[in-house]
């Protein structure tokens, strides 16, 4: 039996950026980009579910993000996660990878013991691949990054194939361990229709608070209790639930700052036209030979 925690992140769909997403000042208009489940994190969840299918145990998915990140937690439930946690607080906003890994590692300590933590190698917005290893360091556990294949899990160890520069290596590691996976490690399973029916009504604390707003007949506590009793409560951890050092969270806890952002404008600007004829190409070659670039 193995207990896994999976780190999942909701990301803007940067693979499908179109013109109107980039603003005049070069920043990205995130509201114009659909928010999606970071693909490699779905792969991470798939691996955790496979381990559960084979050896038994539990799979818990957690995300730190704004309230709307509950969307991907519901998707985790549809795929087969046993428990999901939303870690959300205004004070967590603007976090760089250091602050993100701090909050995640404290949340993991609160959630309980585990054998595996799975993460995606990299999220497609920040593209840093830092959160996994930074979290492992804070938890003082080993890591295997760039995992391409889980070879075996036995006697409290995992054997995995990982990518290295120019090849691969096979690593064996005692549990607990954090692994980051690449996209080819597994094909995420599709949602189970039955689970979608059951869990599409799952709600986080913030979503329940929204329901209560403007309805004096409802109370948050009572509603949370009701959702909990039907296993439809998305457990929500805020600043108050985790004993955190405020100066290590969000913007305050982030040593790196985005100073400037420029969009990359693609146009077919200035260049010398060369006729596609033998004469045109001949002149170009002469010029390059004169400049000692050719010949």
């Amino acid at each position: 039996m193995y207990h896994s925690i999976v780190l999942v992140k909701q990301v803007p769909d940067t693979a499908n950026i179109t013109g109107n997403v980039m603003q005049e000042d070069g920043t990205v208009n995130r509201s114009k980009l659909p928010a999606v489940f970071n693909h490699e994190d779905k792969v991470a969840l798939e691996i955790a579910l496979q381990i559960k299918d084979t050896y038994g145990g539990t799979v818990t998915a957690i995300t730190m993000g704004p309230p709307r990140a509950s969307d991907i937690l519901r998707e985790c439930l549809y795929m087969g996660a046993d428990r999901v946690y939303l870690i959300s607080d205004r004070k967590f906003a603007g976090a760089d990878t250091l602050a993100t890994s701090y909050v995640l590692s404290e949340a993991i300590k609160k959630i309980g013991t585990f054998d595996f933590i799975f993460a995606g190698r990299q999220a497609i917005d920040g593209d840093t691949a830092q959160v996994g290893p930074q979290t492992a360091e804070k938890l003082q556990i080993p890591q295997i990054t760039y995992v391409e294949e889980i070879r075996s899990v036995e006697n409290g160890t995992v054997t995995a194939k990982r990518k290295i520069d120019g090849g691969f290596e096979i690593i064996r590691c005692a549990l607990p361990v954090l692994l980051t996976v690449v996209k080819d490690t597994a094909e995420p399973r599709s949602f189970k229709a039955k689970r979608v029916m059951t869990y599409k009504g799952a709600r986080s604390l913030m979503e329940i608070e929204k329901l209560v707003e403007g309805n004096s007949l409802l109370s948050v506590d009572a509603l949370v209790h009701e959702y909990e009793s039907r296993s439809l409560f998305i457990k929500t951890l805020t600043m108050d639930d985790l004993h955190l050092d405020l100066v290590r969270c969000g913007v305050h806890g982030s040593p790196t700052k985005v100073y400037k952002v420029e969009s990359v404008v693609l146009n077919s600007g200035e260049h010398e036209h060369v006729e596609p004829t033998k004469a045109g190409i001949g002149k170009l070659i002469d010029k390059l030979m004169e400049d000692h670039i050719l010949g």
């Binding site: 803007p12 940067t14 693979a15 950026i17 980039m22 070069g26 920043t27 990205v28 497609i124 917005d125 920040g126 593209d127 040593p255 790196t256 700052k257 985005v258 100073y259 400037k260 952002v261 420029e262 969009s263 990359v264």
Partner: peptide
């Protein structure tokens, strides 16, 4: 570069 290469960001650690 960030956002899948669509932007170039200047990051500082002030």
């Amino acid at each position: 570069p960030a956002f899948g290469g669509n932007i170039i960001a200047t990051i500082i650690t002030p």
